[in-house]
Structures are given as C-alpha cells and as structure tokens.
C-alpha cells in the first residue's frame, strides 16, 4: 500500500507540468478570439445576476435582504459545480486520441477540467466581492473563512467529476441526461428562494443536497457575520471525503477499460 501511494505521488509530480499546460490550454481556448477575453468570467455572473434579480424581485417577492447578493452567492457556487462536473464528464472522451496513444495518468484530464473551472470560480467570486462593495454591503472579518466551504466545494466537485467522467465512458446516455439532473439540482439548492418558503418534506430533500450546506456556509460568513456552524463543517468534511473516495475508487476500477470503450 505504502509503495503504491509513493508511486502515485511520484507519478503525479512527474506530470504536474502537464496539468499546468492542460489548464492553460482550457482557458486559452475558452476565450480565444473573444474581445473581452477572461473578463467574461467576471461579467457572466454579473449579467446573470442582473437578469435574475430583475425577474425575481418583480415577479416573485421573497423576503430577503439584499436579494442580488443572496442570488449571486448561490449562483457562484452552483455554476461552479455544474460547469466543472459537466466538463469533467467529457474529459476522458474528449482526450480519447491521446489516451489511445500515450501513457498518461488518466485522472489528469478530469483534474485539469475541474481546476480550470476553479479558476473561473475565483473570477466569479471576485464579481461577488465587487457587487458587495458597490451595493455598500457590510464587510465582515468572517469573510476570510470563506475558504472553508470553497475547499469542500472543490473536493466534492472533484469526486463527482471523477465518478461521472469514468462512468460516462461506458454509458454515453449520461451526457444527455446530465443537464436535466443539474436543472433539478439547481431547484433543490436555495439559490433564488429562501429556505423558509419550503414546505415540509421538500425542505428535507433540499437539506440533504450537499450544495445547500455549502451555500449556507458561504452566506453565513460573507453576509451574516457568523461563523460556519460546526455541524456544517463536519457534514461538509464527511461529504468531501466520501465524494473523493468514491470518485477515485470508481475511476481506478474503470480506468483500464477506458481504452476499450473510447
């Protein structure tokens, strides 16, 4: 076991340059030939927030203080999860031509996709900070703790990404189904609505959703000047470990058959 892990680490260190190149490529290609380039990562969440807050503060009125911020914080978390897992899903398939020809640790493709989404996460978080400053929202010291829910978020996303990237190689139907899944997940995350409007059993379903816990923690430290609850941290930690373990396990179980199915 010990030697296995040291081989794993050696291998990872050997290919870390590749990881950097792959992340760089993802970002370069995404914004190539667009005039505003990387600014889009900043602009996108802002514009989405503008549209949604106009719609929701006129159509449905929720009793939420500073609704644009409430909305944007939920959206930053959810968009990261959905973008990262969606691109991780096709990571192996998109790199089929390489995997068929050169030996590479295959998880590197999934990790690079999640990491490039993480860079986008930083950009959209910057957008959130900008909106906070512009709307003269109070800035609290607890904001520093926002890294805690973000670490959980990236870990859970990585686990889900590894899992879904591995099984999609065999079951291509997932690619078509996944956008429906993320839509359901979006409505099961308190992004546009407050928890208080949820009736009985739906509330429990929403609470089970790992993203709910993360969004709640982000809002607690960013807007409400409160420390994340200990239970929240514990749940987030356990979920991160489970997601990573499950993702890695499924990935390792399946990676030798990738070449036969791509």
């Amino acid at each position: 076991m010990k030697t296995k892990i040291s081989i794993f680490i050696q291998n990872f260190l050997r290919y870390r340059h590749l990881l950097v190149e792959l992340v760089g490529r993802d970002i370069k290609i995404k914004y190539r030939r667009s005039t505003l380039g990387v600014f889009w990562t900043l602009l996108n969440p802002l514009l989405m927030m503008a549209v949604l807050s106009v719609v929701f503060s006129n159509l449905f009125k929720f009793d939420i203080e500073n609704f644009p911020l409430y909305l944007l914080s939920g959206q930053v978390v959810f968009t990261f999860f959905s973008d990262a897992t969606t691109s991780a899903m096709s990571a192996i398939l998109d790199n089929a031509s390489l995997i068929k020809k050169i030996y590479l640790p295959k998880y590197i493709f999934v990790i690079s996709r999640v990491l490039s989404s993480t860079i986008n996460l930083f950009a959209s978080f910057t957008a959130l900070l900008l909106v906070m400053v512009i709307t003269r929202a109070e800035l609290h010291y607890t904001m520093i703790l926002v890294f805690i829910p973000f670490i959980f978020l990236v870990a859970i996303t990585m686990g889900v990404g590894l899992f879904i990237g591995a099984i999609t190689v065999r079951f291509r139907d997932i690619m078509h189904f996944y956008s429906i899944f993320t839509t359901v997940l979006m409505y099961l995350t308190p992004i546009i609505y407050p928890m208080s409007i949820l009736p009985g059993w739906i509330k429990y379903v929403v609470l089970i959703n790992p993203l709910t816990n993360i969004v709640t923690m982000v809002r607690d430290v960013m807007f409400y000047n409160s420390l994340p609850s200990l239970l929240g941290i514990l749940i987030g930690f356990v979920e991160s470990v489970i997601a990573m373990a499950l993702g890695l396990w499924v990935f390792y179980k399946n990676q030798d058959t990738f070449i036969l199915n791509i």
Binding site: R14, Y15, H17, L18, V20, E21, R25
Partner: peptide, 15 residues
C-alpha cells in the same frame, strides 16, 4: 508554438 509546449509536457518535459 503553444502545441510545442503542450506536446512536450505530454512527453514529460517541463516548460
């Protein structure tokens, strides 16, 4: 030019 560095990394060379 960009492909030279990407391909080099695939073969295990640093930048």
């Amino acid at each position: 030019r960009e492909n030279v560095f990407l391909n080099g990394a695939l073969l295990g060379h640093t930048r």
